[in-house]
Amino acid sequence: MRPRPYTLVAAVAAVALSTVVAGCGSGGSGSGDELGVGYFQSATIGPEVLVAGNKDLAGKVDGTFKLNPIDSGVAGLASLRGGAFPFISGVGNPPVVGAIAQNTRLKVIYAEYYDAAQLIVPSSVKTNADLAGKTIGALQGSSEDFEIRGWLKTQKLENKVKVVGFPSEAAIAAAYKAKKIDAGYVEIAQALDLKQNAGGRQVVTAEQIAELGYPSVNVLAVTDDFAKKHKKVVQQVVCQFAEATKIYTGGQADSYIEKAASTVGAPASQAVDATTVLPFVPVSEQAEQLAPGGTVAKAYKLTGQFLVDQGRTTTVPTDAQIADHIDSSYVEQAVKDGCGQ
């Protein structure tokens, strides 16, 4: 899911977005019509905000982005299912796989970025094996929960370490400082705090865990109904998300992020710090990410088992079900023709 505010300064409270994120229509497709996008409010400037906040990107889409704040991936996907908006951005593995299990008619169409969480331990933990018998705090039922449990399996520690679920990143950090848990798997802001102010050290990151076979990829999804009716617009949106990715990774991100930050009322300097730490998925890797049996499909299969183990779903979605909810054609087209450039 979209990170709780990633910032190297401090976690930023959700900003008030009254007129900017007023309700949106879900059926528009022509020039000037509203294109509703569910997104997470934070200092992080995701592709949806970068596009909406920069006219040279937004002007290449037939419609006007209307950003709808969501509090969680589960709630956001419920709103999408109910017709509140046709797109949702920055949503992670568990909510999407849960939606697939409920046969929500959507397609995952762009892989945005991996999580940027870190496992923080005290100095007394010298090696990974020292975690045996210890407790690790993680955001309950989240992408991070999935990731850290996967990492423990790769270290053959899954039956030796207890993962304790918490309702928020702040609660994990507080429990770590109070020595109620032995380690915390937390986002950038809290990780930095625990390293600087609580003597913690970093053991592994979400990006490294992804390389070990347990990736959580935050994605863009669209409803089947909207995609069928407005294929051209969906292609335009994916193309501009691809352009946003190139901006993030091409050395020109700061000015774009600052401009987009003003659109949603986020402080520019904090937005730059919060966004540039994210491990964005390069455009060159998009087709593989969304291909049948690719990174996203494999991650969703593993996440399905995680959700069953957590008691949140009763069955793991089949390969066919997962494939039916991923559409790589838009990124394939974007890579093929460079979006007309």
Rank of each mutant, 00 (worst) to 15 (best):
G25P: 03
K336P: 00
P282I: 02
K336M: 00
G98D: 00
I181Y: 01
G265E: 09
A16I: 09
N103R: 13
A183T: 13
T223K: 13
F280K: 13
I88V: 12
Q240N: 08
G63S: 04
P279D: 11
V238W: 07
L77S: 08
P282A: 05
Y176V: 08
V219D: 08
Y256L: 05
A170M: 10
Y185F: 14
G165I: 05
N197S: 14
Q102Y: 02
V316D: 12
N54C: 10
L50H: 13
I136L: 10
K66D: 07
E34Y: 08
G28D: 04
F146H: 05
A132I: 04
V74R: 11
V125S: 04
V20L: 03
T135A: 04
D337I: 01
A287M: 02
E285V: 07
Q41T: 06
A210V: 10
I172D: 03
S143Q: 11
A266E: 08
K126I: 02
G294L: 03
A274F: 05
A101G: 05
L278I: 01
Y110E: 00
A253Y: 07
S42E: 04
Q202F: 09
V219A: 09
N128K: 06
L8V: 14
A271Y: 06
A43Y: 03
T303W: 00
I188S: 13
S328E: 05
Q289R: 06
Q310P: 04
V237F: 03
V161Q: 05
D182A: 14
K259E: 11
P167S: 06
D225F: 12
V21L: 14
A78G: 09
V21D: 15
N68K: 12
I109W: 06
L50K: 10
K160D: 14
F306I: 08
Y113H: 13
R2V: 13
R105T: 08
A138L: 02
V219Q: 11
E147F: 03
V316W: 13
P94Y: 04
Y113W: 05
Y248A: 06
S124D: 12
K66L: 08
V61D: 13
Q208M: 13
D62N: 15
I247W: 01
A52D: 14
I257R: 12
G265S: 07
Q310H: 05
C339T: 02
